[in-house]
Amino acid sequence: MSRIVYVNGEYLPEEEAKISVFDRGFIFADGIYEVSAVLGGKLVDCEAHLARLERSCGEINLPLPWSRAELVAIHEEMIKRNALDEGGVYLQVTRGAADRDFPFPKDIKPTLVLFTQARNYVNAPTVKTGIKVVTFPDLRWERRDIKSVGLLGQVLAKQFAAEQGANDAWLVEDGVVTEGASATAWIVKGKTLISRPLSNKVLPGITRKAVLAFLAETDFTFEERTFTLEEALDAEEAFITSATAFVMPVTSLDGHTIHNGAPGPTTLRLREIYVDFARKGGVLG
Results as ranks from 00 to 15, higher is better:
Leu215Asp: 00
Met78Gln: 07
Ser36Met: 10
Ala124His: 14
Lys158Ile: 09
Ala83Tyr: 13
Ile27Phe: 12
Asp168His: 14
Val127Tyr: 04
Ala161Cys: 11
Ala73Arg: 07
Gly9Cys: 06
Glu224Tyr: 12
Glu231Gly: 14
Lys18Asn: 14
Ala37Pro: 00
Ile79Lys: 09
Lys189Met: 15
Arg143Gly: 12
Leu215Phe: 02
Gly180Lys: 00
Ile60Pro: 00
Leu253Phe: 05
Lys106Trp: 12
Asp174Leu: 04
Leu84Thr: 07
Glu217Ala: 09
Ala51Ser: 03
Gly130Asp: 02
Asp168Lys: 10
Glu15Lys: 15
Pro197Trp: 13
Phe102Gly: 09
Glu34Met: 03
Asp276Lys: 15
Val5Ala: 07
Val38Gln: 04
Ile74Arg: 12
Ala216Lys: 15
Ile108Glu: 13
Tyr121Cys: 08
Phe102Trp: 14
Gly150Pro: 11
Val72Leu: 07
Trp141Glu: 15
Trp141His: 15
Asp219Trp: 04
Ile258Arg: 00
Lys209Glu: 15
Ala161Leu: 10
Gly58Ala: 02
Lys189Asp: 14
Gly96Ala: 05
Arg140Gly: 03
Leu112Asp: 06
Ser199Arg: 07
Asp107His: 13
Ala37Gln: 05
Ala118Cys: 08
Gln154Asp: 14
Trp170Met: 09
Val188Cys: 09
Arg52Gln: 01
Ala17Arg: 06
Ala210Met: 13
Thr207Leu: 04
Lys132Met: 08
Val5Pro: 05
Thr126Asp: 12
His49Thr: 01
Glu10Val: 11
Thr244Gln: 00
Arg208Asp: 05
His259Tyr: 07
Ala118Met: 08
Val211Met: 00
Ala166Gln: 06
Asp30His: 11
Val89Gln: 04
Glu163Cys: 08
Lys42Glu: 08
Ala235Arg: 09
Phe246Asp: 02
Asp99Gly: 13
Asn8Ala: 01
Asp85Arg: 14
Arg208Ile: 04
Ala169Leu: 08
Pro137Gly: 11
His49Tyr: 04
Glu16Gln: 13
Pro204Phe: 03
Gly58Thr: 00
Asn200Ile: 14
Ala73Glu: 11
Ile258Tyr: 01
Ser67Glu: 13
Arg225Tyr: 13
Ser242His: 03
Arg68Pro: 01
Val176His: 08
Ile194Ser: 01
Val44Thr: 11
Ala185Pro: 05
Arg225Gln: 14
Ala118Tyr: 07
Glu224Gln: 13
Leu43Cys: 01
Pro263Gly: 08
Lys147Cys: 00
Thr228Tyr: 06
Tyr90Arg: 04
Ser36Gln: 07
Asp85Pro: 07
Leu253Gln: 02
Thr192Gln: 13
Asp85Thr: 14
Leu139Pro: 11
Ile32Gly: 02
Glu59Val: 04
His256Thr: 02
Phe220Asp: 09
Thr126Arg: 12
Arg225Lys: 15
Thr116Asn: 02
